[in-house]
């Protein structure tokens, strides 16, 4: 990575479909320059200081706007925010000038030990105040607005008092951040925790939502019941597409990302999924026009 002084200039992400950039696809993306609205990376995959990842990303950034999606900030943890982590993210943000920067509404560390997972926070006033403060700290460090994403969860705390959608909205309203609405995570949680996913959609304000995520999930069966797991290893299912159509209708067209992490298919499969999202977005643009 060259010095931050010769970084990129800001490039806005249009309300179009984009895909997650994974190392297996670097070469093909560079060779074929697919027609997508943007690429999203996992910020931590570029925390290394140089070498292949940055050479590829610089090349791709020259032609596309970027979104940075963080996995490891541990927003909801009671541990102090990692200064090292925030500072490295800031360097990358200053250099690559991503249009969107997001983190998860979850925690992943305690007492310095990291679980490298998106663990659920209780939806309580205490957690809300804590997370609002943390989001503000990060925004102060980066001197940028961030987005927070609703995560999939496999349990609910009995002492949660605030509906998830209201919690997410409150974090955004009180901290000044935006919302990255993961429609698959809404569907997964609605199924796992037995609520109406449309209630979630109805509970967030259109102005706060700056990006939408779509992904595939898996069903795990147990003798005492089944649960949906957010695996990002398959196609977006019909129910999630339907929920996405409703989301776009209600919130208007938003930059939409196809996320795929495990059992990564050919780039063409991701582009097909992005195409489906793009068609829905364009239909909505047409309605608006």
């Amino acid at each position: 990575m060259a010095s931050p002084t010769d970084g990129f200039t800001a490039q806005p992400i249009p309300a179009q479909a984009g895909i997650g950039l994974r190392s297996e696809h670097y070469r093909e993306v560079i060779a074929t320059r697919p027609a997508v609205g943007f690429f999203e990376i996992h910020s931590e995959n570029f925390f290394g200081l140089g070498g292949a990842p940055h050479q590829y990303l610089e090349n791709i950034r020259a032609d596309y706007p970027l979104s940075f999606h963080g996995v490891g900030m541990s927003l909801g943890s009671v541990d102090p925010l990692s200064e090292q982590h925030s500072q490295r993210l800031k360097q990358l943000v200053d250099y690559y000038q991503p249009d969107l920067i997001s983190e998860h509404l979850s925690w992943s560390s305690f007492n310095g030990q990291y679980f490298n997972d998106l663990l659920p926070v209780p939806y309580t006033p205490e957690a809300l105040t804590h997370i609002v403060d943390r989001v503000q700290q990060i925004q102060d460090t980066l001197q940028r607005q961030i987005l927070v994403e609703n995560v999939s969860s496999y349990l609910q705390y009995t002492h949660s008092t605030i509906p998830e959608w209201e919690f997410v909205s409150q974090v955004a309203q009180q901290s000044g951040c935006g919302i990255l609405l993961d429609v698959n995570n809404i569907y997964v949680n609605a199924t796992n925790h037995d609520f109406d996913p449309r209630a979630f959609l109805g509970g967030v304000s259109a102005q706060l939502v700056k990006e939408i995520h779509l992904a595939g999930h898996s069903v795990n069966e147990f003798e005492d019941g089944s649960i949906l797991i957010d695996t990002h290893d398959q196609l977006v299912c019909d129910e999630v597409w339907s929920l996405y159509r409703d989301a776009v209708r209600r919130l208007g067209p938003k930059p939409t990302l196809i996320e795929w992490d495990t059992n990564l298919p050919e780039l063409a499969v991701l582009l097909d999924e992005a195409n489906t999202a793009q068609t829905i977005l364009e239909a909505s643009h047409a309605r608006v026009a």
Partner: peptide, 13 residues
């Protein structure tokens, strides 16, 4: 080496 231990936001199946 392709830097394959990409950080993920997903859960394992």
């Amino acid at each position: 080496k392709a830097g394959k231990n990409d950080c993920q936001t997903s859960n394992s199946s």
